[in-house]
């Protein structure tokens, strides 16, 4: 009985685990290749544009931050593996459809990209410095340069002269 129960328990867990891991197991994608596809280092087989051309993903740096499409940092967290796979399969957004309808992603590419999204959602890179901060920093630097140049400025001749003589002779203004 005990053994039977044990068996049942084990198999239930196994089924549950299988259920849990089945999509993960199905995705045999390579996150590294996924990144290469995302940034465009490796071209999509059927000629689709790399994701980066329109989308941003935190962790890739401000220099490659396109903002035509939404930020994809939280894609995996929001949609899950199946959602991502589904989206990548059809890409049925009006602006994307025109590009990808005739140049769909191959199955392997979809797996790779999903793996990449999964990986980045785990890593969840620290939020990129907001642009406002960068601008502020720039302004501070400019002001600092101007202030440095201003140190050489002629700051008055007469008053310092009078002050100096008064000081020498111990006269109060």
């Amino acid at each position: 009985m005990s053994g039977n129960r044990m068996y049942c328990h084990c198999s239930a867990v196994l089924v549950f685990l299988l259920f849990l891991s089945s999509p993960v197991a199905a995705v045999t994608g390579d996150a590294g290749r996924g990144e290469a596809l995302f940034v465009g280092k490796t071209a999509f087989e059927l000629g689709g544009a790399p994701c980066l051309a329109c989308h941003d993903l935190s962790g890739l740096g401000s220099a490659v931050a396109a903002s035509f499409g939404p930020d994809l940092s939280n894609l995996y967290t929001d949609y899950g593996a199946e959602g991502v796979a589904g989206v990548l399969e059809s890409l049925a957004f009006p602006s994307m459809e025109a590009i990808y309808a005739s140049r769909p992603l191959t199955e392997q590419e979809r797996f790779d990209l999903t793996a990449f999204f999964a990986k980045t959602s785990e890593q969840q890179a620290p939020a990129a410095k907001p642009l406002v901060g960068l601008i502020l920093l720039g302004i501070i630097i400019v002001f600092a340069i101007v202030a440095l140049m201003g140190l050489r400025r002629l700051k008055g001749v007469r008053q310092p002269l009078v002050d100096q003589v008064r000081k020498q002779r111990g006269i109060k203004a």
Binding site: L154, G156, Q159
Partner: peptide, 14 residues
């Protein structure tokens, strides 16, 4: 270079 901040101007007090 210093067209917007000529540093060598006398002040009004001078």
């Amino acid at each position: 270079g210093k067209i917007f901040h000529n540093p060598d101007l006398p002040t009004m007090d001078d």
